[in-house]
């Protein structure tokens, strides 16, 4: 058991009607790690989470979560996980404390233990004052914190966080990141989905890029960034003629050409020598390049390189 990964999935597929949402997802998540599924809306992130949390059955493929088979041992899986979805899954007409006590009772804690646990969690998530207020009056950030607290009544072996910060303002998002970072110290395995590169970069040990229902790349943030050249030289040219001349000269080497803005990029290792040599090679007469900048690869570049499009959002999308 101890050596067994927290999540092990092979060949998960799922279709809704003629729409193939997952086309074969394999996952391997070691215990105690933070694993992030990163991808745009509609990539299949939520479906993957729903399958791994037993809410949806896969059409084919198999998976073990916390050492239990998803299909054969559904009840055991359910008792080993917690799920925080995109919606705030709480009763608005109940207070924060009442919601937590109810969840505690459903986790089969005694009345007294449920109340004590609710108080502890309210304190841990900085909701003591709000605890007696109805959830309907909470801000978005407070709801997410309470939602997270509700999924920790009985510490789970694996926590699923489905887009935990989508729709939050930057400050609440930063606060959620702090909370999640603290959770990782407790040794719980966290399976996180997000459409924000920065979020995956900051929180996750390993990241899987998902697009069109399959995983297109997986690794640490650093490994993924190495898949595209580490750095990029961004050039702004002096005119359309210069742009066209250079684009023709570079051919396939030209990255992200934009004729309207007169910009294009080339790969570089980022060293002064290489940048100097590149500029001499591309612009021997020193008339074509107006400005340049050296750009360090982001996950967005990786995504673009692998899928041909960017993740939809760096800033919160309207949900």
């Amino acid at each position: 058991m101890p050596g067994e990964p927290a999540i092990e999935a092979t060949g998960l597929t799922k279709s809704y009607g003629s729409v193939r949402v997952l086309t074969g997802v394999d996952l391997h998540v070691p215990r105690g790690s933070v694993f992030s599924l990163l991808g745009p809306n509609g990539a299949g992130k939520t479906t993957t989470v729903r399958i791994l949390t037993t809410l949806t059955s896969p059409d084919s493929g198999s998976a073990r979560v916390a050492g239990h088979d998803l299909v054969r041992d559904r009840a055991r899986v359910r008792r080993s996980i917690s799920l925080t979805g995109q919606d705030t899954a709480l009763d608005e007409l109940l207070s924060g404390a009442e919601n937590l006590r109810m969840m505690g009772r459903l986790c089969r804690l005694s009345r007294g233990k449920a109340a004590a646990r609710a108080d502890e969690l309210l304190a841990q998530f900085d909701l003591v004052e709000a605890g007696s207020r109805r959830v309907g009056t909470y801000s978005g950030g407070m709801r997410r914190r309470l939602d997270l607290a509700a999924s920790l009544i009985v510490p789970p072996a694996v926590m699923f966080l489905d887009e935990p910060t989508t729709g939050l303002d930057p400050r609440s998002r930063a606060a959620m990141w702090t909370v999640i970072t603290e959770l990782t110290r407790s040794g719980v395995t966290i399976f996180l989905t997000t459409q924000y590169l920065e979020e995956a970069d900051r929180l996750a040990d390993r990241i899987a890029l998902v697009d069109g229902g399959r995983i297109v790349a997986e690794g640490t943030a650093a490994q993924l960034k190495q898949q595209v050249s580490g750095h990029r030289l961004d050039l702004t040219l002096t005119g359309v003629a210069a742009f066209d001349g250079l684009a023709a000269f570079l051919g396939d080497r030209a990255l992200l050409p934009d004729r309207d803005r007169l910009t294009l990029s080339v790969a570089t290792d980022g060293s002064a020598g290489h940048v100097r040599a590149l500029l001499d090679e591309l612009d021997p007469a020193r008339t074509a390049v107006a400005r340049f900048a050296v750009h360090t690869a982001t996950l967005d570049d990786v995504f673009l390189a692998l899928t041909g499009h960017t993740t939809t959002a760096k800033e919160p999308a309207v949900v």
Binding site: R79, T88, A89, A150
Partner: peptide, 13 residues
């Protein structure tokens, strides 16, 4: 529609 049913089910309720 508000997600609480999913939470209950994932708690084996």
């Amino acid at each position: 529609t508000n997600g609480i049913m999913d939470r209950f089910r994932s708690m084996d309720v």
